[in-house]
Design a binder for these strands. Sequence first.
DNA 1: TCAAATGTACGATGTCTGTCGTAATTGCAA
DNA 2: TTGCAATTACGACAGACATCGTACATTTGA
Lengths: 121, 121
Amino acid sequence: MKATEAELEILNVLWALEPATVREVHDKLIEKKDAGYTTTLKQMQVMLEKGLVSRVASGKAHVYTALINQQQAQGQIIQRTVDAFFNGSAMQLVMQALGNHKASDSELDMIREYLDKRTKK
Amino acid sequence: MKATEAELEILNVLWALEPATVREVHDKLIEKKDAGYTTTLKQMQVMLEKGLVSRVASGKAHVYTALINQQQAQGQIIQRTVDAFFNGSAMQLVMQALGNHKASDSELDMIREYLDKRTKK
DNA sequence: TCAAATGTACGATGTCTGTCGTAATTGCAA
DNA sequence: TTGCAATTACGACAGACATCGTACATTTGA
């Protein structure tokens, strides 16, 4: 059930666009990354075999849909990362993430808002 | 200067023990993971070439020290995770981490405090 | 209708990663 | 000093990954 780096990039695109054709995914993908069309195609074919995505024919093309949902995947990877590299402390990861990345005021406000809701409850 | 998954596991052990010999690192490593001694040795030799660690001879063994600190590496891991799973948004990761894990009030306070410092500045 | 355009299928390849076997080396104890 | 146990050095290997070239299939519009 684990996806490779390249597969995750595709999943990311797919989660935003789905359902989507290889062409659509590829065009979006090369905004960030350089690769040939057949590379993306092959990648998605492999993902189909792995059960990461499904597809249906539509005209001459195939239309793909992700079979794992984004939040589930994100939750799993966070758990794995926290266990392996942050001594099991998710908060340690959060602090590190806040420290190492630029965040806009509005983003920080969102987090603060979230924290308030947490505490009240 | 990117480390692989296996290299990060070794670094993790090294940070706790350093300075440490291959034997010491390996013994600690196999508590969690199964691998041969020469595998760990080779890994650390490669890491030496990559400049991830340094070493000095001590008796017949070598004593290794990490050349990147833990925070740096954790930052690297977060960056990679964010890129692969969170569309490059560290905030998205933070929210997910906060949502999926229990956090004590004091931990939440720490984060709130941190946020305040951030905003002021 | 049929040829160009578009898409899929399939196989080949180079690289990276992790793994380990074996040989060479070293320090130490007897 | 010498043999043994522990360590390092070297190289090879399989499998995973990412990439792409080329052949085949399908749609469509002139």
